[in-house]
């Protein structure tokens, strides 16, 4: 635990708001590094006001490679600030520890964060929003934004708070409680259920193929539906799932689908 903390309320909220801009100066060389140094700059100035050498080192550290989910980033930022404070007070603190903690945490945190936030929370929000939007209701975009952003707000706030409070202890307590595993397990349950529902509701293929003759003619699709509703949807989903597992690029699959659909419709006009 850090004692004598210098992070006052104003600085806490500055870190909070600045963390929202993490993706806005992205680059291929070191990804979110410009934004990350921007987020920390003001806090670093305050923490190291008596030690110019350490202050410059901290500013430069901020510009190291950074890649993390924006909504989870406050956790790392909090830990980073707590360690900087310890470094400022303690002369025997090993500075390289900050770097190594940052590097070793960002990978796993980005992994959990990406599957949790854009992978799950966004899908739940989109699933709800799309079902309203397809009917032309303004509730679609509104629900989409609320379901995504309200939880995001709390996730940012508590991860900054926990990260800062726990500092370096964070890693130990993470390992002890495996809270992250529980959170991502629970979120993926809801997420996958929503995906399953959308597989049925949002995929469609109304083949204009009729089976039978005269008054008894029925579209082919309705035969499938009599066997089990959603069989076509499930099959299409299964095919895509299989193709992605075989390391096919998504853009290639997308253009293949476009090509096949347009090609087949063209052929059907010839007969």
């Amino acid at each position: 635990m850090t004692t004598n903390s210098k992070l006052d309320k104003k600085e806490f909220w500055r870190l909070y708001w600045r963390s929202c801009a993490l993706d806005h100066s992205w680059n291929y060389e070191r990804q979110q590094n410009i934004a990350y140094s921007f987020i920390l700059a003001s806090a670093v100035d305050k923490i190291y006001q008596d030690d110019e050498e350490k202050r410059i080192a901290a500013l430069q550290r901020g510009l190291d490679f950074m890649a993390i989910t924006p909504q989870i980033s406050p956790l790392l930022i909090g830990i980073n600030v707590a360690m900087d404070e310890e470094n400022a007070q303690n002369d025997i603190f090993d500075e390289s520890l900050i770097q190594s903690v940052k590097t070793s945490l960002m990978g796993p945190l980005a992994g959990i964060g990406d599957s949790l936030i854009p992978g799950t929370l966004r899908i739940i929000a989109a699933g709800m929003g799309i079902s309203f939007s397809l009917a032309g209701s303004i509730l679609g975009p509104v629900i989409f934004l609320l379901v995504f952003n309200v939880p995001s707000y709390f996730i940012r706030y508590y991860s900054l708070k926990f990260g800062y409070q726990l500092g370096t202890d964070f890693i130990k307590s993470m390992a002890k409680t495996n809270i992250m595993d529980t959170v991502s397990y629970c979120a993926s349950i809801v997420g996958l259920m929503v995906v399953g529902g959308m597989v049925y509701q949002q995929i469609w293929l109304d083949l204009p193929i009729m089976v039978g003759s005269g008054d008894f003619a029925q579209p082919l699709v309705s035969y499938f539906d009599q066997i089990a509703p959603g069989l076509i949807q499930l099959a299409l989903f299964g095919i895509m799932y299989y193709l992605l597992g075989r390391k096919f690029k998504t853009t290639r699959i997308l253009f293949a689908v476009l090509g096949i659909c347009i090609g087949l419709t063209f052929l059907s006009t010839l007969f």
């Binding site: 997420g191 995929i203 293929l205 109304d206 895509m240 992605l244 997308l254 689908v257 476009l258 063209f266």
Partner: peptide, 25 residues
């Protein structure tokens, strides 16, 4: 035929998105 083919594609393409998400989580 081009716009018809496209219409069918828009029904199928969401399957790619769902599969991507499923592959991840």
């Amino acid at each position: 035929w081009l716009s018809d083919g496209l219409m069918y594609a828009t029904g199928i393409i969401p399957a790619i998105g769902f599969a991507m998400i499923a592959r991840m989580i």
